[in-house]
Design a protein around this nucleic acid. Structure first.
Lengths: 187, 187
DNA sequence: CAGTCGGGAGAACGTTTGTTCTCTCGCAAG
DNA sequence: CTTGCGAGAGAACAAACGTTCTCCCGACTG
């Protein structure tokens, strides 16, 4: 079997299982049967479970941000692009198997014992916040708005992860609209 | 040893260890030596680790909300009372051993396998949101403001948990001030 | 004082974990 | 054809887990 294919199948299985049930609840044996990749191969590709966890988070970060950017890219109006972030969140929350933010979950589970996981989560959040800052700057919003919208998005993700409802995305969107109005300039 | 004392010492140890390192990273044996309560007594007070986890979350919920309410109660101006929530969050984030929201962490770790943990987290978040709704209603804010401020608070908690910095509390406070202004009524 | 009950300390148990080892087979090179 | 390398399947391993059991002492009752 081609190493790249094995790697992908492994990461696919890791993502589904780690995200769906938590890292510590999934054993290497289950990963092997879910991916169809032998334990020997698994351990030459990822010398330890931690390495696999890191790779899982890194790939998820990339894909998550690419999906968001692709969704936003369908709009051209700068203000609509900012608000599209919250629409995308809503779709994500409502999708099958949604179980909160993989990075928040991983930090909750492993943050106390694995600094690498904390680092990965921090980089993911930073990258997302930078992206949001670009969008808000393009929309002509005041500079502090980026940080405010980032908090709304994080709050929506965390709340949706606990409640299981996509509603926080709509609420965050409506708050974002309010914040994007420069003071004292409603219709 | 008095059962109530044993129970408290157990919950103290559980809170420190579970919160600081995660539930699955702490074994019953460590709980025993940290609390000084024998395993036999431990298992008659909490027949399984899950029961102890639940009790830990429930006590933490109560204390957390009481501490917040006590802090808020020091102010009388309705608007200041709302903003005090974010000041309290800042103090919490900056305190020693802060490692994010115990409930978010527990859901990240056990949400996929323990519905009771998810329920406890949901109740905690609900109670907090209801409290925030009271405060905002008293401040004369529009009804949707409560949900908006809740998202800001949750976002600040999640972000501070990952980054370890108390700064998100200040940012959330400044966003909250902006949201509390009825549209078109700055100074 | 004798007897019994309850609890503390920690050994023991069975399971599960992450990781490594063994065995076997297919296939490519000489 | 034979020889050897690499990989797959899964047994094996040591450690750690949650939970239960054994042993022993110390205190209260008659």
């Amino acid at each position: 079997m081609d190493p790249d294919i094995a790697r992908n199948r492994l990461l696919d299985a890791a993502e589904e299982l780690f995200y769906g049930r938590g890292v510590q609840a999934v054993g290497m044996d289950e990963l092997r049967s879910a991916s169809g990749v032998s334990l020997k191969r698994l351990y030459q590709l990822f010398p330890s479970k931690n390495d696999l966890v890191e790779a899982y988070l890194r790939r998820r970060d990339t894909r998550w941000r690419e999906a968001l950017a692709a969704y936003v890219a369908e709009r051209t109006d700068p203000r609509a692009r900012v608000l599209a972030v919250f629409d995308w969140l809503h779709d994500w929350f409502a999708g099958p198997g949604f179980r909160g933010c993989a990075f928040l979950n991983a930090v909750g589970e492993l943050g106390g014992i694995s600094p690498a996981v904390v680092t990965a989560a921090r980089e993911h959040k930073d990258a997302f916040h930078r992206y949001l800052a670009e969008l808000t700057a393009d929309a002509g919003a005041p500079p502090e708005a980026a940080g405010h919208l980032a908090l709304l998005a994080e709050g929506a993700i965390a709340t949706a992860g606990v409640t299981g409802s996509p509603e926080p995305a709509r609420r965050a969107r409506s708050a974002a609209e309010a914040l994007l109005q420069p003071k004292g300039s409603p219709a």
